[in-house]
Design a protein around this nucleic acid. Structure first.
Lengths: 146, 146
DNA sequence: TTAATGTCTCTAGCTACTGTAGCTTCAAGA
DNA sequence: TCTTGAAGCTACAGTAGCTAGAGACATTAA
């Protein structure tokens, strides 16, 4: 049996994140030791690894919840899991296209900055006037820019 | 003078978002009409357009705050604005690389799903076992998957 | 005048965590 | 056996960047 710290290390997930996952019901409530500490078995590690991996691939926690419940019933046809992955793929393709055009735009902005004063800095100029844009980057970002 | 609704339409920003920007000090407090409604002039529209455009390009509100204060002092050298844009560009390139490898992975996953039952669905299998991954997608996502 | 629309403030909620405070438990060494 | 330090516990607050809703007031067109 693993403590929460060991589990986190093994799965590559931070301890508060594991507790958070339990809190929101993504992971089942853990067994407890005599001193009220969480204890995890191999299966819990598999499940957490699954979650981390899916997060890395960009799945939302809701999608992961669905995938987990699917994998808990392995006799059903896998169309549902496939659909979730496909949705995710479409989403990623959209983001890729968007980011590519942003990159073009920023590259152009940076290249045009002649190193003068702000009064003639193209970076600020382009940001103030959409019509100076070369690329047509859409209207809403929809993702946090971290 | 524009009401908040007209301003929002003109700049392509939702009304609550404008109030939010004012609340966090990104936009100055607006003038008020006799009936306590916000009124905006042309300059406010420029500023809001700048903000929206920068948000679309993935700048954080903090970075935008910096850019705005730079553009308020147009006699300084533009190195700072340039640096912000470059940081942003590097960030976008990282995200692009990451998303590309995610796309490869998901495409592979979806292609391998043979349409059978979940017991042998590669989507779930790949998510449960990192060693099955073709691409080396890093450790942390750092962006909300919307 | 009336109805519809717009605006006001305030509060709470969203995602996916992260950090803090103040306490308890555990394992290893003296 | 005692001590010490790391790791664990709960509970709550905070992060970004908004979005949604309630209930009241303002404006405008018919």
């Amino acid at each position: 049996m693993l403590t929460i710290g060991k589990l986190g290390q093994a799965a590559g997930v931070k301890v508060p994140t594991i507790r958070y996952y339990e809190q929101i019901g993504l992971l089942p409530e853990a067994e407890r030791s005599g001193g009220n500490q969480r204890l995890y078995c191999r299966k819990a590690l598999d499940r957490l690894t699954f979650v981390r991996h899916a997060r890395e691939l960009g799945f939302t926690l809701d999608a992961i919840r669905d995938l987990l419940s699917l994998s808990d019933h392995p006799d059903q046809p896998c169309a549902a899991a496939d659909a979730i992955a496909k949705t995710q793929l479409a989403e990623i393709e959209k983001r890729l296209a968007r980011l590519s055009s942003l990159k073009v735009e920023l590259t152009r902005m940076v290249a045009q900055c002649a190193g003068g004063s702000i009064a003639d800095c193209r970076v600020i100029e382009v940001l103030g006037d959409h019509s100076l844009c070369a690329a047509d980057h859409g209207h809403r970002e929809g993702e946090g820019a971290s």
